[in-house]
Write a protein that binds this DNA or RNA. Structure first.
Lengths: 143, 143
DNA sequence: TGACGCATGTCAACATCCTGACACACACTC
DNA sequence: GAGTGTGTGTCAGGATGTTGACATGCGTCA
């Protein structure tokens, strides 16, 4: 393959389209909760791995630590998470969800699960597992 | 499934990661040509479907027509494409690649094809077809 | 003919994310 | 102890994308 052929047959192009469609649907699902996709991603990671610092959260969600810093401020402003005023060791300040944060996360997680469920409605269990491993293969091809 | 479970097992999460990794690799591949991914997408679509208007290009690449307008200006500034100064019918102005535009597109298309090839190195022909149809299924689940 | 809907191009304000830069805290080495 | 390297948090500027708004051109229909 010397050039990109028919765009409709390009895996990369369709991958981008699928991701864009998913992101749009997530935006719609999260709008009633006043959450952006970035904010939701932050909450979800934090729910599963409490105590992560700003930089660690940034790496987990594929953004820079500057961008994650902005997200954390917004969420802290709304009392969805807490950070100690000063670090106990080094400069990193471990972040924790508040009770309100866990409540909002539970709602958001349900909304996002519904979106994902809709996206995967055309697959059986084997198909979903296959798609997941295929996507992991694609992702890991670049590292 | 009531909530998003383990993020590492979430198809949506991994889809986002794969798309982000692809975009990063495309950025790297296109940087020597002084092209952004948005600009490349515009050129590629235009190469396959000459004469598309600003709004049509925007829809094809999943951005707003305002954003595409900016992209077109940049590309027109570099004489990679041409637009008639005024519309012959309605307000839409059909866009065409210049010879230089076709030349740059050919280079960019080769670079992007190499990236896609790297992403799909772990798949055989059947696997690629399967992944493509799976991604189309995901994309079309939202329309 | 005139009113209305609809698509298009464009301007402005705003949000988000990035790159570049700097200061601080710790670990390691000489 | 001083120098160096790495990781972290934060500020500033710029690039890119979005929503909101407006004017223009065309088609439809009463």
């Amino acid at each position: 393959m010397r050039q990109v052929g028919d765009l409709g047959m390009s895996v990369g192009y369709v991958l981008k389209q699928a991701a864009a469609a998913l992101r749009g649907a997530m935006d719609d699902a999260l709008r009633p909760l006043e959450l952006t996709v970035s904010q939701y991603s932050c909450l979800e990671v934090l729910g599963q791995r409490p105590g992560l610092s700003n930089s660690e959260l940034a790496r987990a969600t594929f953004v820079t630590r500057q961008a994650m810093n902005q997200v954390l401020r917004g969420l802290q402003e709304r009392d969805l998470l807490t950070r100690p005023a000063e670090a106990s060791h080094g400069r990193s300040r471990p972040t924790e969800l508040t009770d309100e944060g866990r409540r909002v996360l539970a709602q958001a997680s349900r909304a996002v699960a519904a979106v994902e469920h809709r996206m995967l409605a055309g697959f059986d269990d084997d198909g979903r597992r296959r798609l997941l491993t295929d996507l992991l293969t694609c992702r890991d091809a670049f590292s």
